[in-house]
């Protein structure tokens, strides 16, 4: 258990995100370790995600930011060799607690993936699917309403209003990603996790999605993984820096990008490595 000892050493260096704040903490993680088989990917992560804020996770490739994101809605459960320990609380309740159902958790914590992955179904069905399986709409008009509102919120309604029955896979990359956001919104989640949502998009589509993220912040708590410093700076209020599986620093975004506490963060942000 050499890894563990190293991890424990790092705990001291890891700045626990315990600053008192006026904002409510939506998700709090304490001492989260993640293992892929024998290999440890995350070491004692202590991170609080605040409500109605955008928290950006940055760091070089392979640093564990996506792994951490996937812990928050237990998507790591689908990977056989993956093991998560520690405590992750959503509104104060441990998400690994037996009384929390994983289906319910994922309905409350939605996810948008790196590559747009609409279902090979119509645009309407893509958005309606979540609402259908969770029984959010009793009648067809209610479902129509949900689809329309979700597309509206995702800023896609104007572009697809008259072709809702065309396949979602026929849209452009940026539209597909906004469709995936609409699909996530349709379930009425409390938190939306975004795993590099713009990495497959061109700058114009990226700008649209970023604008959308800023708007969504008023109603949802958002955690976004990004490789782009500028994006983190533009859309987030809080930023967490990961490096080699440890949380190096978490801070207000303004402070992070102007005067970071940690040397490694400074180096990464200024492009000295990563």
């Amino acid at each position: 258990m050499l890894d563990m000892s190293i991890a424990n050493l790092d705990v001291a260096a890891t700045p626990a995100d315990t600053e008192t704040s006026a904002q409510t903490v939506k998700i709090s993680s304490r001492e989260v370790d993640v293992f892929y088989g024998d290999k440890q990917a995350l070491f004692s992560i202590n991170l609080d995600v605040r409500e109605n804020m955008v928290t950006a996770l940055i760091g070089p490739s392979g640093c564990g930011k996506s792994t951490f994101l996937r812990c928050l809605n237990r998507m790591n459960d689908t990977i056989d060799i993956c093991r998560v320990s520690g405590e992750i609380r959503l509104d104060g309740v441990d998400i690994h607690d037996p009384q929390i159902d994983v289906v319910e958790l994922r309905a409350r914590v939605g996810m948008v993936f790196q590559k747009p992955n609409p279902f090979p179904k119509s645009i309407y069905d893509n958005v309606a699917y979540g609402a259908r399986i969770h029984g959010l709409a009793r009648t067809k008009p209610e479902l129509d309403e949900i689809v329309e509102t979700s597309l509206q919120k995702a800023g896609l309604l104007g572009e697809v209003r008259d072709r809702l029955d065309e396949p979602g896979t026929g849209l452009s990359g940026g539209q597909q990603q906004r469709l995936c956001i609409a699909r996530a919104i349709a379930v009425s989640p409390e938190v939306i996790l975004m795993d590099e949502p713009c990495s497959a998009l061109d700058p114009i589509a990226t700008a649209k999605v970023e604008e959308l993220i800023s708007e969504l912040r008023t109603n949802y708590t958002i955690v976004i993984v990004t490789h782009s410093m500028q994006q983190a700076a533009r859309v987030s209020q809080r930023t967490a820096m990961f490096h080699l599986g440890i949380l190096v620093e978490v801070n207000d975004t303004d402070r992070m990008f102007t005067n970071p506490d940690d040397e490694r963060t400074r180096d990464y942000i200024t492009g000295r490595y990563g």
């Binding site: 809605n73 998507m75 994922r106 939605g110 993936f113 279902f119 699917y129 699909r183």
Partner: peptide, 23 residues
């Protein structure tokens, strides 16, 4: 069947059986 389809369904809270049967 690509993993992305499974993740998409699981990510919005479909159960495993729903993911398999619907997608």
């Amino acid at each position: 069947v690509p993993l992305s389809v499974r993740e998409a369904a699981l990510g919005i809270g479909a159960s495993r059986a729903q993911t398999v049967l619907h997608h």
